[in-house]
Design a protein around this nucleic acid. Structure first.
Lengths: 401, 401
DNA sequence: GTAATATGTTGGATAGCAAAACAAACTCCA
DNA sequence: TGGAGTTTGTTTTGCTATCCAACATATTAC
């Protein structure tokens, strides 16, 4: 019986370790939950009514949030005003892929205000990707300066990224090695820039705004053209490891004498489970997960069914390992992994029930990702918001007071 | 660049989330590091001299710590008094195994004051184990009441244990299922009791007092008669998962068409890597890890070398997965896994270098566990200390003030 | 319309900490 | 041997975030 997070602190001291500054706590709540009444905030934080009132007043002054008249919900007692995040507090998101660089603008509250996909002829180098992003941002600059307060830029990269210094250690599908993309884009734009692994950011995005909302332990797996990426949320926090490389579930061992993987090992999940044979069997050259699903559903051949079953078997092995290791409440699948699961619902659940340990397997649920193509924008923006959310008052010179 | 833990807090509020109550922080530091000067505590906590002084005074009053004259170390400046944990603040530890129940008494500071191994004729049932522990504790009772303040009992069980309610969900080697051991022992002894997985507690023990001291991310693997257990420390905290089942690395998939495991799956690490064939090849019937190592070193047969190599290969696959997933700084091996590693040093390192991803693999070091047979006592005691360490002042009626 | 209920608002009290000034105890060096 | 320099303990003072209690306000229930 571990001491559970105190909902109603009795002692005067700080009983909840995960609580940063309370101003930051309120900002995060409003950002991640969108719309909350003051009364709800009081309950959620465990703080006193008067304290919440004072803090909200401060956030209103800082122009981080604004209040509106109580909603018409019929309830006994004095109605509580609604607190909204100001979307003019924003972050930029950049996501380089093998065939495009996407740049987005995300407001506080997690809504994508703008998204520009820049298709590239060939796989972009780090320098090219930075140049594209910088140019697009430069184009938006006057609008940004006029209508937004931009807290920074987050870059979601498919590869190993050292989160502390923003250096891409190795992005195999992009062919990048030891590229200091955060510094490069920082110098090009003047904004504070941070970089991280795309799937890790996806995990955070789905945790905060998508299918994993409210969960404390979840595993996120994304399947795309750049292989399989993973992100792990443990006890409400993204697992980062020593350098931020944690979560590479795409290289889980799933098959003896499997094919060699670019990582140097054999039998990795990523080599056994990939989207290209699915696209081939579906008879389409390429496209997104939605198009793949449609094409596969239209095709009732034996070959498709066999390939789907084969891939699900290996995916099941990887998930079994993950479940035994993490004991999560939820697994969230994105990209073609979400398609595989949707095509044969119940298959993965069954293999977990039969193969994973009783305790952990009995609690886990498998979901499909909810945020679709906005996910990377939201996740990357979260990276840029992080510093602001940790200290909303210190991030910029107070405008009014 | 994530905001790193502030060493020198500027704002008046609580900037470091991992800092519980500062009184608790000091108590933990003294408990885990044994002997620290007041000046060192000031540096470690980032608190003001005056604050540390006041807090230590309170802890002295509470009889949690005591101070002694400064050590004779030649240093410029006024010498700083040494702060010691009082070993009379203690916790009981219980560790049921297939052939014995071990009961221990551990003082604040982590020293095992007493250890009693009660050998059993056959595998104990939960009720028998509780009865044995309760009887041994009853025998110690008068001494405990006279000379110690016992904060509770921690039970380390080889199996899936729900840490929240202290119920053993399934301990396959003991044959226990859904046994509320914490409640049972609590009723039998009157002490607050908690239970958890043995390897998880081992991980915490090695983290705090052993080979992993000072690390933030480590993987602990213990090999014993009851198979392979694992515990994972991520960002300084034990990974628990939804119900505390996390860390079951013994059931990592390492071989296609491997033997069936009692867990329902096939190809688990635990079925491919086990100590019984090693004992057979070594020509001894049983014993502890030290005896096994001695016997294996004395035997230079091909068969031994082959079996060691085979087991290390599978262990390497499991570690490769774990390294890719967690990006730890350290792997700590205990029991016969430690022996395997010691017999063929470098083998595991090599397989990680070649098979795991460049980034994570470059940083990890493999150690052998340092605490030996005291580990389970220390780990289980930590479980009992947890509540006290979280609130040293609230745990008992203040004796003096 | 009155009672009950929930919430915002205000003023005072408190706890925990930092900062500053001072005192103490040591090393270093002439 | 004694003063200079350095580090740390101690005391006092003040600040800040919070809680608490009392009161004000806005709604539903009857």
């Amino acid at each position: 019986m571990m001491p559970s997070p105190t909902r109603n602190p009795v002692t005067a001291s700080e009983p909840d370790p995960s609580r940063r500054n309370n101003l930051a706590l309120l900002t995060s709540l409003v950002h991640h939950n969108g719309v909350l009444s003051r009364a709800q905030l009081t309950k959620r934080t465990g703080l006193n009514r008067s304290t919440v009132g004072a803090l909200i007043g401060q956030l209103v002054n800082l122009e981080v949030v604004y209040e509106t008249a109580p909603s018409g919900e019929a309830q006994v007692g004095r109605p509580s005003p609604i607190v909204h995040p100001r979307p003019s507090i924003a972050a930029l998101a950049v996501n380089p892929e093998i065939d495009a660089v996407t740049i987005g603008l995300v407001g506080l509250g997690g809504k994508v205000q703008k998204k520009i996909r820049f298709d590239t002829e060939r796989i972009p180098t780090a320098k090219e990707a930075v140049n594209i992003a910088a140019a697009v941002i430069a184009g938006m600059r006057s609008e940004l300066d006029a209508s937004y307060r931009v807290m920074g830029v987050g870059i979601a990269v498919p590869g190993l990224v050292n989160r502390d210094d923003g250096v891409v250690r190795h992005a195999p599908h992009l062919g990048w090695r030891d590229e200091p993309v955060a510094r490069m884009l920082g110098e090009a734009t003047g904004y504070p820039c941070h970089a991280a692994n795309d799937a890790s950011l996806g995990a955070e995005g789905e945790l905060l705004f998508g299918a994993g909302a409210g969960q404390k332990n979840l595993i996120f797996l994304n399947g795309g053209a750049s292989g399989i990426g993973g992100g792990i949320i443990a006890d409400g926090e993204l697992l980062r490891g020593t350098s931020g490389y944690a979560g590479e579930l795409g290289h889980t061992f799933v098959r003896s004498s499997g094919k060699p993987c670019h990582c140097g090992a054999t039998g990795c999940l990523e080599t056994e489970v990939s989207q290209s044979p699915l696209f081939e069997l579906a008879g389409i050259g390429g496209g997104d997960a939605g198009q793949l699903e449609q094409a596969l559903r239209a095709n009732s051949s034996e070959a498709v069914a066999a390939e789907v079953a084969r891939q699900l078997e290996y995916l099941g092995i990887a998930l079994r390992n993950a479940v035994n290791t993490f004991n999560p409440e939820a697994i969230v699948l994105d990209g073609f992994l979400g398609v595989l699961h949707a095509l044969s619902p119940g298959t993965l659940d069954n293999s977990l029930r039969s193969q994973a340990l009783d305790g952990p397997a009995g609690q886990v649920k498998i979901y499909r990702a909810a945020l679709g193509s906005d996910l990377m924008m939201i996740g990357a923006a979260e990276l840029a918001f992080a510093q602001f959310l940790a200290d909303p008052a210190g991030a910029f010179p107070s405008p009014t007071s």
